[in-house]
Simulated assay, not measured.
Amino acid sequence: MLEVTALPLDVLRARTSEKWREYPDDVLPLFVAETDFPLAPAITDALQRAVAIGDTGYIASRTPLADSYAAFARRRFGWDADAERMRSTADVSMGIVEILRRVTAPGERVIVTTPVYPPFFELVTEAGAVVERVPLREDGKGWELDLDSIRAAFDEGARAILLCNPHNPTGTVHSRDSLAALAALADEYGAAVVSDEIHAPLVQPGTGYTPFLAVSDAARRIGYAVVSASKAFNLAGLKCALMITAADSTTAIVSGMPIEVEWRTGQFGLLAAVAAFSEESDAWLDGLLHALDQNRRLLADLLAAHLPGARYRIPDAGYLAWIDLTDLGWGDNPARRILRDAKVALHYGPAFGAEGAGHVRVNFGTSPEIITDAIERIAALVER
């Protein structure tokens, strides 16, 4: 395991990406899902080599990307994904839209499990379908799929479900049994499951993550997975994702997409993803997971000490915290006041669905110092 630590604030403020350009320098940005760590060394080397020789053309018709991801999935998840059933595109969102366009007809309904990553609502609409909201069920210990309500939605005509596995914003890792039950339901109704697994590399050790297509024969018959190195390795701007299938019928749908869907893959994104998925980057990823484990626990300690009215469940995956601030009395969208008065930018809870009222999403993929500063700033509002 390599030691992975966040870059200092002065270096981060030299970045030109969304996280560091949306707000002025007096604001601590903990909203959009970018991380503050240096790139894995293998990725830096791959990109530097490409720049040195001008390797900046179109992606090739034959690349090592699928084989690289298949090996990564085998090492990290124990999943024997078939490299022959993978096809690249620009990003996970594009992959979702292209699949939904082919498994639903215009006006048909697609289930999303709120609170959920806000672009899901737009992606379903972009594909020509209609959003059917089926909230996760909270049992006091965690969140889980509401299988009874999902069955009811299928029974009323929903043709697909857009799954978030692991779930954003809650950090929930859906159990194998729950995913198997979902697959059986979808198979019974002839519906598709499109599983966004972009946060999968960020599952904490021992959590028991299962890729959807590894769950059962039913999952393989009706399922599609869309994956990327972008969240774990901070490569969102380089544009590369994989659409994965596990049955002849689903593979035919992805294989039948126009070649332009694949050519939208970024050359730098592909080179970086191959390096990220290589065994050479495993030690860096283990170090990142260790740093995030410390940060998710630090956040719990800080909230308990400074904002005891906040309700926070430590996530099993990712670097995003879903925090209920309802008891502080700051309204349905407390992030607005926090931005205005504490100069801390958090993601607006209501953007994730009605269940997000009173909530904020906090990105803790940064340094302990920035996390501490942010929570102390917010706590000062209570003290006033």
Rank of each mutant, 00 (worst) to 15 (best):
L2Y: 15
E18W: 09
K19F: 10
R21W: 07
A33G: 13
D36M: 04
A40W: 08
I43W: 01
T44L: 06
Q48S: 12
Q48V: 01
R49G: 03
G54H: 07
R62H: 12
Y69N: 08
A81G: 11
D82W: 11
D82Q: 09
R85I: 03
A105N: 12
G107K: 05
E108D: 06
T113D: 13
P115K: 02
Y117Q: 10
E132G: 00
L147E: 02
A152V: 10
A160M: 06
L163V: 08
S178Y: 01
S178I: 04
S178T: 10
D187M: 00
E188N: 08
G190N: 07
V193N: 12
H199N: 12
P201A: 03
P211I: 02
Y224C: 05
A232Q: 11
G237N: 10
L238H: 01
L238Y: 02
C240Q: 09
A247Y: 02
D248M: 00
T250F: 01
I253R: 06
I253V: 13
P258S: 10
V261D: 01
L270Y: 11
E280K: 11
D286Y: 05
D286K: 08
D286G: 10
D286C: 05
G287W: 06
Q294R: 15
R297M: 07
A300I: 05
D301G: 07
L302E: 11
Y312T: 02
L325E: 12
D327E: 15
G329W: 00
N333M: 09
N333A: 14
P334A: 03
R336F: 15
R340S: 15
R340Y: 12
L346C: 03
E355Y: 07
G356F: 07
A357H: 14
S367E: 01
E369C: 01
I370W: 03
A374Y: 03
A374H: 04
E376C: 12
A379T: 01
R384P: 13
